[in-house]
Amino acid sequence: MRLRHPAATVATCLAACALLLVLEDCQAAESLYNPASFRPLVADRRAAAAGDIVTVLVYESSSATTTADTNLNRNNTLGIQAQANARQHGLNLGVNNDFDGGGRVQRAGRVLAQLSVAVTQVDANGDLWIRGEQEIELNSDRQHIRIEGRVRPADIANGNSVQSNRIADLKLSYVGNGDLAERQRPGFWSRVMTWLGF
């Protein structure tokens, strides 16, 4: 029987112990890859979690036309004849009522804007809820845009932008205040006369 050198035996024991420690650590180790938060280094960064920013491209155009025509005609005639002492008396009463009405309502609107909004929450199916607002003041005129809605991650383009017609449950508010908006409103007396029906 051939005996091993003591140094080789010690080295073998140390290698076996190190192997056992490595195997034990491997069983308790966790993966560094988390599919929920993984973002490739070579891909465009898109909004995916609460707090992320996404750019909304607002291209909204709407048009509506309503026309109504009404014609009403009513003729009533009442005749009474009486004869006494060879003389004939007559009474004839006629009522005529005509109504002719018409109306036309036509509206058109167009909004073009770009604003960055934040993701407020993420649904269980991955849809992103977004909300944000933008305020611009120019020469005492203030324009305020507010937008909120729900976006599918697949609708977010490579540049981390989404079109407004791809947003579900869209709420878009575009309000202007200032001298220009004030000049577009009817005057006080005009509003009073309209309220009275004149």
Rank of each mutant, 00 (worst) to 15 (best):
V42Q: 09
S164Q: 14
R2N: 12
A7V: 10
N76L: 12
L72I: 06
T55W: 01
C26K: 07
N73Y: 04
L115A: 00
N125W: 03
S161G: 03
N73A: 13
I130L: 12
A18N: 07
A8W: 11
A181F: 14
Y33Q: 01
S173R: 11
L170E: 08
T194Y: 14
N85V: 03
T67G: 01
T194K: 14
I136S: 06
T66E: 03
Q83K: 13
R150K: 15
L172S: 12
H89F: 10
S63W: 04
A168P: 01
Y59T: 06
T194D: 14
E30K: 05
M1V: 08
R152E: 03
T12Y: 07
A28V: 12
A28P: 03
F198C: 05
V162K: 09
S63C: 04
T67D: 09
S37Q: 13
A82D: 05
V58F: 05
A47D: 00
R39P: 00
N73I: 03
A84W: 11
D127F: 07
A68D: 13
N97C: 02
N97H: 04
L138N: 15
D25F: 14
I136Q: 11
G197M: 06
L93W: 02
S31T: 15
I53H: 08
Q143E: 07
N85P: 00
G101M: 01
S61C: 01
Y174L: 03
L14P: 01
V56E: 07
I80G: 03
L41P: 11
S116H: 00
Q121H: 09
V10K: 09
Q121L: 09
I130V: 15
L93K: 00
D52F: 05
R142V: 13
L93Y: 09
R152Y: 01
R39F: 04
A7N: 07
T77W: 00
L138C: 09
R166K: 15
V111C: 10
D179I: 11
V95G: 06
S37F: 15
D69R: 09
L32K: 14
I167N: 06
L172G: 09
L32D: 08
V175M: 02
T12H: 01
S61T: 05
R104L: 08
F99A: 06
G132C: 02
G101Q: 00
G79D: 13
A154F: 02
A48N: 06
L14K: 09
N139S: 11
